[in-house]
Write a protein that binds this DNA or RNA. Sequence first.
DNA 1: TGCATTTTTCTTGTCGACAAATAAAATACA
DNA 2: TGTATTTTATTTGTCGACAAGAAAAATGCA
Lengths: 234, 234
Amino acid sequence: MAETEQTPVNERKRGSGVKMVYDILRDEILDLVLPPGSAVDEVQLAERFGMSRTPIREALVRLSGEGLIDTLPNRSTMVSNIDFLNMHTYFDALTLMYRVTTQLAARHHRAEDLTIIRARQAEFAAAVKAQDALAMIATNADFHLAVAEAGQNPYFTGLFKRLLDEGRRILRLYYQSYEDRLPQRFVDEHDEMIAAIAARDLGLSERLARIHAEQIVEQVRKLLVREGRLEIAL
Amino acid sequence: MAETEQTPVNERKRGSGVKMVYDILRDEILDLVLPPGSAVDEVQLAERFGMSRTPIREALVRLSGEGLIDTLPNRSTMVSNIDFLNMHTYFDALTLMYRVTTQLAARHHRAEDLTIIRARQAEFAAAVKAQDALAMIATNADFHLAVAEAGQNPYFTGLFKRLLDEGRRILRLYYQSYEDRLPQRFVDEHDEMIAAIAARDLGLSERLARIHAEQIVEQVRKLLVREGRLEIAL
DNA sequence: TGCATTTTTCTTGTCGACAAATAAAATACA
DNA sequence: TGTATTTTATTTGTCGACAAGAAAAATGCA
């Protein structure tokens, strides 16, 4: 069997190459496997993925459009840096999107949306219970993205997704310090938010989201300050 | 003179091709020269711009990333359609960005920002005076974008820019009905907003922006309903 | 004539190659 | 030895060509 259709491992369907490279590189950037500022070599990637430079290039253009890589014309392209100086603009945008998407979810969600949201919340709770910091980061983002999808505004969802991605990079930087009791609090807050959304209480949903956002921002800010001292001390 | 450096008209610098194609196509899409749903042929574009398909392709990938064109895998790529059914999500996002960016401008603007904003407003007023509907659309977007830039939050500015672009397409559809007295009202409202920003009155800036946004949304909605009746009548 | 199947055509996705632009290395010169 | 200039090397941007996929056209069959 399978003698004629023997599939060489490197045989891929027409058009799938770009998406594959894009997905893998995106994950590696967000997980800091490719650290900010590191060089991205097209020819090296082409060898690694066993394809020509053309699809690699297209994936890089996509990533560049999302701000995940920066490309100097005619010169090197590299993983984009995290802008610690203007972090407050990031927090502002993130907080507003938390509030808006949660409120919209309360207004526009359907029954099946709640099912998905609860599933995501269960995954987040499991990650917290297992004290798996990396899984917590990922499942938390998934949870809030599910809420945003329920809000049914693709403009907000799009921006929010970008912000959560960026947050994944930032949190990944400091994920070692997740051994405290805060995560359980996040689980509880998520539950409250779900209840408010299900009850279609717009005001409460927005308020809970705001509190939740400020909670998270405050924690990240503490981490930044702690690390910031170290950096200055060098 | 200029015998050795004779520049064939089609001679361009290394890396400028993509940007040129991108800019031109983007403008043509936003001005409806390329109507929504129309096919985009790579070969045809390559001939038109006198270059190979590669840079064309990169420009298209960029445009696709911004949602200006849709591309079916292995199949045709076309100018993205305007989603009239979910127009309310567009209005929601636009209104919120009006409010947020104006308030942030009141908080973070610098002296030179005000200079730019006033210059944009002068251009808008000139377009209104000349009753040039197309110029009004463009200069109005430029004015609000200048306000957003003063707010110094690239996340909001980015989304807002996308929304204003989309609005340029929508308004372009109905620009014929701009002969009423509303535009002058927009000029006045802009002036009020500038004053509030200059006075760093966050609350007033936000309120004026909200009123202004609702004004615009209401006008567009009227246009849509009027046209909508026609479409249904078919 | 009406429908299924094959053939053709057309467009896209991918490839390997080459030239331009820049950085790095090597050389010249004081 | 230090600086300016030339040479080499590396990486990107562009090109033309070819093959895969899907629609359209053509053919076969009832």
